[in-house]
Computed example of a mutant assay.
Amino acid sequence: MNTSLLTRGPSGGDVFARIIEALRNDGYIILNNVFAIEQLQRLFIDIKATDDRQFHAAGIGREQERHVNDFVRRDRIRWLDRSHAPVVFYLDWAEQLRQRLNRELFLGLFDYECHYAHYSKGAFYKRHVDAFKGLSNRRLSTILYLNPSWQAGDGGELVMYAGEGQTVLETVSPAFGSMALFLSEEFPHEVLPAKRSRYSLTGWFRINNTDSLNLDPPK
């Protein structure tokens, strides 16, 4: 594995250093050109070729409290791991980032979980946070967008808020190859209704909450 290809984006520079500095100062970063066009096309072709039966309705909550709520979110997802060849390069990149984050920011990240997400026309995800303080093992959220030729009128933007109020921090178009990374507990966000199919590869770096009473992740 050529580590330099994982840490340097197609436009050059140390992408991981930019991510670390932004997380240290702001808690989030919006990036473009993290991956080469050939890599992005590989993921797009794969997600488009995925049989719809392999996607399932996304839920809210975790473990025993997890349930589907169409009022809150209407995306469909497919969980991914290293057995799925088209995403291995991306998981290699995530692993290199995990190690670098732990070394420089001492985040104690244990692993990374991710899925494809498909928002069909009209689908949305209302305002939420990816992790509640002290109650979740998700520490850092990542979203890589896989939407060629996305136009301003196509909707589906990620809206990030500054804390509990209504102040909008960022409005992110899900354009092909753009990527958002943010601390999972810190930033409420929503996905506005998509006006055509919207695809992403969404994931979370997690800490390990295993103790004498609980196994994390649960078997």
Rank of each mutant, 00 (worst) to 15 (best):
E38Q: 10
E157S: 10
F16V: 07
D92K: 12
A36Q: 11
L158K: 03
V72Y: 08
F187T: 05
L107W: 01
L31V: 09
Y125L: 07
D26N: 10
P86M: 09
L181D: 05
A17L: 06
F55T: 06
F187C: 04
Y28R: 05
L201M: 10
E21A: 14
G134I: 02
A123P: 02
H189C: 06
G163K: 01
S149G: 11
E164I: 00
S11G: 13
N209W: 07
D70A: 14
T3C: 12
Q166T: 09
M1V: 14
N102W: 06
F182D: 03
L192Y: 07
E190N: 07
F55G: 05
G122K: 04
D70Q: 11
Q166N: 11
F182W: 04
L105M: 14
D211K: 11
E95Y: 04
L169N: 06
G153T: 09
R74T: 05
V159R: 05
A117G: 00
D51A: 13
P148K: 10
E113H: 07
H189Q: 07
S184I: 04
V72T: 15
F89D: 09
V68R: 10
Q54V: 11
R198T: 08
P217H: 03
K121H: 14
P218L: 15
A152D: 15
I77P: 00
A194I: 00
V129L: 11
N208R: 12
G122T: 02
L91P: 04
V191Q: 02
L140E: 00
M179N: 01
L135S: 15
T202Y: 06
M1W: 12
F35Y: 03
V68S: 12
G12R: 08
L213R: 12
D46P: 00
N102M: 08
L105F: 01
R8I: 10
V191R: 01
P218M: 14
I30A: 11
N2T: 09
Y28K: 08
N208S: 10
L135M: 15
I30C: 12
K219C: 14
S120G: 14
G12C: 09
P10M: 06
D46N: 07
N2V: 06
L181R: 02
R42H: 10
R98F: 02
I60F: 07
D26E: 11
F16R: 08
E95P: 02
I207H: 07
A123G: 04
I45K: 15
E38C: 09
E95D: 12
I47M: 11
A17W: 04
V168E: 05
L109K: 01
R139D: 05
V88T: 06
G27W: 03
R66E: 09
L31M: 14
S184E: 01
Q96S: 15
A94R: 01
A17H: 08
Y125M: 04
L109D: 02
E170V: 03
R76S: 14
H67P: 13
E157F: 05
S212V: 09
Q166F: 04
L97E: 03
L215F: 13
W204Q: 01
N137H: 09
E185T: 15
M179I: 05
A22F: 04
E157M: 09
T50M: 12
G134T: 08
